[in-house]
Simulated assay, not measured.
Amino acid sequence: MDNLLRPWRPDDAPIVLAAAGEPMMDRQFASVLDSLDAAADWIELMALRRAEDTAYSFAVLAGGAPVGNIAVSSVDRRHLTGWISYWMREESRGKGLATRACREISEWAFTELGLFRLELAHRVDNPASCRVAVGAGFVAEGLERARLLYDGERFDTERHARLATDPA
């Protein structure tokens, strides 16, 4: 994938652990990642989901080292849909890597997985994530009120989608 993306490897656990420790990054992981073992378990879970054809998670690389994650999950073979998610380490944000990774995984999902529709959503108070979505060709489709719950507070999200027939 153009040396930008590769599957996560067991030796990436220290990077995953460091990412999970950054401010607000705990929201990106379904469980607490507070040890190398927990980070290794997360990487193992990503490999299991790939084997089950339910999710495909890739390390986003800069200079050959992982600096973020991009995934297509909730793969639905009946409707040929998937859900895109992404995160970047603090020092790698704002450099266009997430947008490039989002474009690349979208093309991969359309060609390799045969999906037709990809969706993603971002908190409305996260304009950087919106720029990634729009820059990767995702069209805003609407507001989802109070969709997310973090620390007892509800957040609205904006949903975006890209179709295989949309311009690249």
Rank of each mutant, 00 (worst) to 15 (best):
K95N: 09
F116L: 04
E91M: 07
R27M: 14
P7H: 06
A18Y: 15
M1Q: 09
R147N: 01
R89I: 13
S129G: 09
A109Y: 01
E158G: 04
E52D: 11
H160I: 11
Y150S: 00
C102L: 05
E153S: 00
G114P: 10
H122I: 10
G68A: 06
R100I: 04
T54E: 13
N3E: 14
R103H: 05
N3W: 15
L4E: 02
A109K: 01
A55V: 12
K95W: 08
L48F: 13
M25C: 07
D151T: 02
A65H: 14
A39P: 06
C102F: 02
E153D: 03
M24D: 11
P127Y: 02
D2M: 05
E141W: 09
L143K: 05
P14W: 07
D26Y: 13
A101M: 03
A51K: 11
F58T: 07
M1E: 03
P23C: 02
A59D: 08
I105Y: 01
L118D: 03
A47P: 05
T54V: 15
S74T: 12
R77W: 15
L80Q: 14
R27F: 12
A109T: 02
R159D: 04
E22P: 12
L148T: 10
P127I: 11
A47Y: 12
D41C: 00
R93Q: 14
D125T: 07
G68V: 12
T111P: 06
P167T: 08
A62N: 02
L148F: 14
A98F: 10
R145Y: 07
A18S: 15
C130H: 14
L45A: 11
D41E: 10
N3Y: 10
A55Q: 15
V75T: 06
V16I: 15
E91Y: 11
A19Q: 15
V134T: 13
